[in-house]
């Protein structure tokens, strides 16, 4: 009786053959819905902060450096890839990518920072998404008017330099 079951077990093993996949030498296909690292698309983002409001790990920060520039910072440290941000994004600016091999020594590598230009409606005071990117760069927020030398300074550097809003975490080895 027991010998028979041993034979059966052997048969099961032989029938199965070799099943180990040649990973990582060969990449394996991933399903369409796979939830990898979220990728934020600055051209689609309207800065509504829905993702930040719904992130269970509190990994998305939104702050305004001035009336016209809103920064959306994804820290990527504790992110569990749950995909809530992508679910709630009204503009589909967040995609859960197929990236999952994200091991890094610099945890800051996983972060993303979006500088979003927010135009202000002159009638209602609300922000709206500006026109083309090239036009945006000319507008206030991406431009500071240097009074001393009487010229324009482009880019938002005048506002964004200095201390980051949230320091990157340091991995304590001690």
């Amino acid at each position: 009786m027991s010998l028979l079951s041993k034979l059966e077990e052997t048969l099961i093993c032989l029938k199965a053959g070799r099943v180990t996949l040649p990973y990582p030498a060969q990449a394996q296909p991933l399903p369409e819905k796979f939830r990898g690292r979220p990728i934020f698309d600055a051209t689609k983002c309207i800065g509504c902060a829905g993702c930040a409001n719904n992130c269970p790990a509190r990994e998305i920060l939104v702050y305004d450096v001035c009336q016209e520039v809103r920064v959306l910072q994804y820290l990527g440290r504790r992110c569990t890839y749950c995909g809530r941000c992508a679910d709630v994004c009204p503009e589909k600016a967040i995609t859960m990518s197929l990236e999952f091999e994200n091991a890094t020594n610099q945890i800051g590598d996983l972060g993303q920072k979006l500088e979003l230009f927010m135009s202000t409606c002159q009638r209602c005071g609300r922000c709206f998404k500006g026109a083309a990117a090239l036009d945006e760069l000319k507008m206030k927020g991406y431009r500071s008017d240097d009074l001393e030398s009487e010229r324009w300074v482009y880019r938002a550097h005048a506002f964004l330099e200095g201390e980051p809003a949230v320091a990157d975490i340091e991995i304590e080895l001690d």
Binding site: L30, P31, F34, R35, Y81
Partner: peptide
């Protein structure tokens, strides 16, 4: 293993279905 794969297909992850 195929169960893990089908779970990944349905939910986007092998184990944490969210």
């Amino acid at each position: 293993e195929p169960i893990m794969w089908i779970a990944e297909k349905i939910s986007g992850n092998r184990k944490t279905y969210a």
